[in-house]
Nucleic acid binder design. Structure first.
Length: 808
RNA sequence: GGGCGAGUGGUGGAAUGGCAGACACGAUGGAUUCAAAAUCCAUUGAGCGCAAGCUCAUGAGAGUUCGACUCUCUCCUCGCCCACCA
């Protein structure tokens, strides 16, 4: 009988679903529970090979953990709100909801064809009212705990479409749809105070079992910088400009100040700035640019002097000019800097352009005072020169001393700034969870009462954004006009919806208790499953999603809703699968691999194993169209092995050799899956199969072990053969085989003899040979004799069980 | 500009201080077949040699070491992330 994957796979998928063998029990207590999570997909239409690469090996891991005796939960769901649904709706005239649910239905059946051990009874869809009710509830908790607030925030604004644009809708500073110049417009929006948690988010990174690169990315994103805030007085006025610096040691070299174009010192002193008209013009120019552009423009720095006002350098009383320039950002630090052109490259470039004095105050050669001639800023450490009483001090010490000295006069203050900005969560979009807030003229903003949740997303027909920068929901009077929860007077709903990252910031909590109508999840079930033991997904979520989810958990813990402070104990990223041409897969390149086609041709088991086998899991790589052939052969061999007795081979089974290989394979596969090294686990299984294939006698025990080891990788084939060899119960409920560490060790080894580090002979010896014995063998070797002829052995290195190296 | 990661046969990769190229793909030759597919066997880094064997070889160059794909430094190339963060 021939191995026909398509026949057996569908059948087993049906049987497993009916029997519910992958449903995780909530009742198991203690440490035996294992929460294995993959990043839930966005229902974009089709399951692509990237999804497979994330989900299939993750399922191997889950199945392995289950066979190791753990009570494993592997849930799946859909991250269903988002902009692409709206775009598809506009393009194809389908309602976002219709489009989304149609995609979900399709992807669900594709997911099932993978043969993963998902507990489908826990499926969640974030655009279901039963789910977003709790997303809205989350918002209310954040609001009640002062973690949600309103502020004017610049948004991408297309003046021609009169609409707010998402970052990805801005192409080259122009509107994606009408090609007109996008400007920055300030709009009042809701923000989450993630910055309150900057320090906690940074500190707790240390304890996580995450890829170090991911931790580092989060660290840089949070961007803690410690320094001093220094107040510069304005000459003749009772005004001051605080600046933030991490290099207080360079203060004596400060030759001018720079403020951001939006800095209040400008607007508040229109009459004092003698060239205000000119300054205003510059500010308007810079407003046209998005911050992203302002930053990414590598073009020259520009600026304008604020004439009529001068600042005073507190360390030496010198008068210095003040500039407004595009290279200083309002939202970071104090929105103003002290410019030290000799020791900061940006200031250096600016000073060169506007012919400002460059004063060297850090010199690497002290006490020789020959300072290098600068063709760029000297940003390294050195010794202070020309710096009053600090002259001669190492710059890293002076950094604190100068600050402390000024602190006595309350001119300086120690400060910590974070790059992390508050999280803007308002979206002027239709396809998202409505923000549960109501605005009343009398009572201002009022939260929707919890018992009135969910605020249902109305089924409106026109989901194009409005002309005033409001969400399409503003068009529905029925939705908007409500009574104020406080005074019962007429009021209006918030019409913005929430950023979809909010939906995905807590979904892993809901899986623990997906049908609960009274709470987002019961304390007891959270206790059972959370935090997540293993989280597997793409590295593209290194900052946004993974940081937001951490923030949510920390905030919820503080509110008393959770009793743990990190959501994901272990995290791993899969690599990216490239097209056969080594390029990123894309429809326009025509190098997209359709997993459905591959499954049809080779079966889901083969595709799963190919993905495991192609290389290190976190590395990804190009799809090799021929690679599946080898896997297919391998699975066929397994099939033949179990279905018929080989008669062609003449080799007799060497019992001990086979036994040893079997135990070595168990060890290798066990260790490898545990460390997500799927590729080498498969190679070990191939070696075992090749060996069994060459034997004329198979012990049924080695076949059983092989099938057990193969079960996580090829669940359908293993299940089929398991029952065919006479077993009664599903292989996926069986215990993982154990190895005997004595049997793993080789009795005899290839002992290496090196002369000067080069291999000159190999001899078969006992594994525990001593140095003296080894030496005797070496001297007896015919191959070695000529090498030692007339030479003196200067040194001998002996490595137990491995080699001996003679240095001559 | 900064950070991180990678670079090994014709290809994907294995080996993380101790036999470089496991396992697989592809290729070549053979067996089987009327023929093909499938399957099986053999060979397969380069060079020299009839052979035993020797030499070279893990992006380039240096260093540490008895011994380096592996550790350190410099440089080159590619990929990803961040990017005027004071």
């Amino acid at each position: 009988m021939v191995y026909n994957p398509n026949k057996i796979e569908k059948r087993w998928q049906r049987i497993w679903e009916k029997s519910g063998i992958y449903q995780a029990s909530d009742k198991v207590k203690g440490k035996n529970n294992f929460y294995n999570l993959v990043m839930f997909p966005y229902p974009s239409g089709d399951l692509h090979i990237g999804h497979w690469y994330n989900f299939a090996p993750a399922d191997v891991y889950a199945r392995f953990k289950k066979m190791r005796g753990l009570n494993v939960m592997s849930p799946i769901g859909f991250d269903a709100f988002g902009l692409p649904a709206e775009n598809a709706a506009i393009k194809r005239h389908i309602h976002p909801k219709t489009w989304t649910y149609k995609n979900i239905a399709r992807m669900r059946s594709q997911l099932k064809s993978m043969g993963n051990s998902y507990d489908w009874s826990r499926e969640i869809i974030t655009c279901d009212p039963e789910y977003y009710k709790w997303t809205q509830w989350m918002f209310l908790q954040f609001y009640k705990n002062s973690l949600a607030h309103r502020a004017k925030v610049p948004a991408n604004w297309c003046p021609s479409c009169k609409t707010v644009l998402a970052n990805e809708q801005v192409v080259d500073g122009k509107c994606e749809r009408c090609d007109s110049q996008v400007i920055q417009k300030e709009i009042e929006q809701w923000l989450f105070k993630i910055s309150d948690y900057a320090e906690a988010l940074l500190e707790d990174l240390d304890n996580l079992d995450w890829p170090s690169a991911t931790k580092l990315m989060q660290k840089n994103w949070i961007g803690k910088s410690e320094g001093w805030e220094i107040k510069f007085k304005i000459k003749n006025y009772k005004l001051e400009i605080p600046v933030f610096t991490t290099r207080a040691d360079t203060l004596f070299g400060c030759t001018y100040l720079v403020v951001a174009p939006e800095h209040p010192i400008i607007i508040n002193n229109k009459s004092r700035i003698t060239n205000y008209k000119f300054v205003e013009q510059y500010i308007n120019e810079s407003k046209k640019k998005t911050e992203r552009e302002r930053i990414s423009e590598i073009e020259e720095k520009t600026g304008v002097e604020l004439k009529g006002i001068k600042a005073i350098n507190p360390v030496n009383g010198r008068e210095i000019p003040i500039f407004a320039a595009n290279y200083v950002l309002m939202h970071y630090g104090a929105g103003a800097i002290m410019a030290v052109p000799a020791h900061d490259q940006r200031d250096f470039e600016f000073a060169k352009k506007y012919n400002l004095p460059i004063k060297m105050v850090i010199c690497p050669n002290y006490p020789k005072t020959i300072c290098p001639i600068l063709d760029r800023a000297f940003e390294n450490e050195g010794f202070l020169v020309d710096s009053g009483k600090f002259t001669g001090m190492p710059s890293n010490t002076a950094r604190e001393r100068v600050g402390e000295w000024l602190q006595k006069d309350e001119v300086a203050e120690k400060k910590v700034y974070y790059r992390l900005k508050d999280w803007l969560i308002s979206r002027q979009r239709y396809w998202g969870a409505p923000i549960p807030m109501i605005f009343c003229e009398k009572c201002s903003w009022q939260p929707v009462r919890e018992k009135d949740l969910p605020v249902l997303l109305p089924n409106i027909k026109d989901y194009l954004p409005t002309g005033e920068g409001k969400s399409p929901l503003a068009k529905s009077k029925k939705f908007m006009n409500v009574v104020c929860p406080k005074c019962k007077g007429p009021a209006q709903r918030e019409t913005d919806t929430m950023d979809t990252f909010i939906c995905s910031s807590w979904y892993f909590l809901r899986y623990a208790d997906p049908c609960n109508e009274k709470k987002f999840a019961s304390a007891q079930k959270l206790q059972t499953w959370l935090p997540v033991n293993m989280y597997i997904g793409g590295a593209e979520h290194s900052v946004m999603h993974l940081l937001y989810a951490r923030f949510f958990v920390k905030a919820l813990k503080k509110m008393g809703q959770l009793n743990f402070s990190e959501p994901f104990l272990s995290l791993r990223h899969q690599g990216i699968i490239l097209g056969p041409d080594g390029q990123k897969m894309s429809k326009s390149r025509g190098n997209v691999v359709d997993p459905d086609e591959q499954v049809k041709k080779y079966g889901a088991d083969a595709v799963r194993i190919y993905l495991c086998f192609m290389g290190p899991y976190n590395q990804g790589g190009p799809w090799n169209p021929n690679g599946l052939v080898g896997i297919s052969r391998f699975l066929n061999k397994v099939w033949q092995l179990c279905r018929s007795q080989p008669s062609t081979s003449s080799r007799k089974a060497d019992f001990y050799k086979l036994e040893r290989l079997l135990h070595q394979t168990i060890k290798k596969v066990t260790d490898d899956i545990d460390n997500l090294r799927f590729n080498t686990a498969i190679s070990a299984l191939m070696i075992l199969v090749n060996e069994l294939h060459n034997q004329s006698e198979n012990t049924s025990r080695s076949i059983k072990t092989l099938l057990l080891l193969l079960a996580p990788f090829a669940p359908h084939l293993a299940e089929e053969l398991w029952l065919k060899i006479g077993e009664k119960k599903s292989i996926h409920g069986q215990k993982w085989p154990v190895y005997d560490s004595k049997l793993v060790e080789e009795e005899k080894i290839q002992f290496i003899i090196q002369i000067n580090g080069k291999v000159r002979d190999k001899i078969e010896t006992a594994a525990d040979i001593s140095e003296a014995e080894a030496k005797t063998l070496v001297l007896a070797s015919e191959k070695i004799k000529p090498w030692l002829q007339g030479k003196e052995i200067k040194k001998t290195i002996f490595v137990q069980g491995k080699l001996i190296n003679l240095v001559i």
